[in-house]
Simulated scan of single mutants.
Amino acid sequence: MFTGIVEELGEIAAIEPLKDAARMSIRGRTVTSDAGHGDSIAVNGVCLTVVGVDGEVFTADVMKETLDRSCLGALRPGSPVNLERAVRADQRLGGHIVQGHVDGTGVLLSREPGEHWEVVRISLPAGLDRYVVEKGSIAVDGVSLTVAGVDGDAFSVSLIPTTLKLTTLGAKQPGDPVNLETDVIARHVEKLVGAHARGGRA
């Protein structure tokens, strides 16, 4: 489990295409400082399992389904990525509960610069809009954000200078894809309420 508080901006060091997967080598000084085989690290919001560590580079195998359902397949050597280690039980939950299981991808539609922040508008894939509410939480490329507004098949978020500087969202441009993970609590509530309304079990 993660919190959506990005620890560092890393970069893709290498990608080895496999038959039905890809092996990614990712550079990140902070996340590799205590990483070991089997640990979980979120890369642009996607939970990956560490299979090897060499200095400041860790390696992870990414299966085809993950490549198809997320934006990881569009990464290339040198691409910047948001990195976060799995949260420990004794840490503060600074963002919100993020599983690292991407629900779908959106597209950055527009950026509106302000004096102290930027308002960014992002498209919502069909079926995810019911989980996104104003003032609710959403993870965009692994960054925990508060939804500023929802308008049909799109939503907006406000990015503070720290987020713009320390995550990939500062450099994303209109047309760029992003990974989206909606609030897992909303999904569980929907299932439980639906089952109750039908008089059955979830």
Rank of each mutant, 00 (worst) to 15 (best):
A126T: 02
S79V: 01
P113N: 02
G152V: 00
G38W: 09
M63Q: 04
G94S: 00
G73C: 00
D90A: 11
G73S: 02
R76N: 12
A154Y: 01
T162I: 14
Q91G: 05
D68F: 07
Q91K: 08
S158M: 09
D141E: 15
P77H: 12
K64F: 06
S33W: 10
R121N: 07
A74T: 03
C71K: 11
A148I: 09
R76K: 15
V119G: 08
A139N: 06
V140H: 11
D90Q: 09
W117F: 13
I41A: 02
G28M: 00
G142V: 03
R111P: 02
S144Q: 14
V46Y: 14
T30A: 15
V150S: 02
T59G: 06
V132E: 11
V46S: 08
V107H: 11
P161A: 08
V133R: 00
T167S: 06
D61Q: 04
S144R: 14
G55Y: 13
V147C: 02
H96A: 00
S70K: 01
D90S: 12
S144L: 15
V107N: 02
H101G: 06
L164S: 07
G127H: 02
V119N: 13
T146Q: 05
T30I: 15
S144C: 14
K165A: 15
L124G: 03
Y131I: 01
G38R: 02
A89K: 11
D68K: 10
D153C: 07
T105E: 05
M63A: 06
E112H: 08
L72H: 10
S144M: 14
T32A: 09
G94W: 07
G127Q: 00
D61H: 04
T66N: 01
T167G: 01
V140Q: 12
R29C: 03
V51A: 11
T49D: 10
V157S: 03
E65C: 07
V150I: 01
A154L: 00
Q99M: 15
V51S: 13
G142N: 01
T167F: 13
F155I: 00
V98T: 13
L166I: 10
G78T: 02
E56I: 10
N82K: 09
L67M: 00
E112G: 03
E56A: 15
R111A: 05
E65S: 05
G45M: 14
V143Y: 08
R27Q: 14
M63K: 05
V119W: 11
D90E: 07
S123V: 12
R27W: 12
S79T: 03
V31C: 12
V107D: 01
A74G: 05
E112F: 06
R121D: 04
S123F: 13
S33D: 13
V140G: 08
V150C: 01
H96S: 01
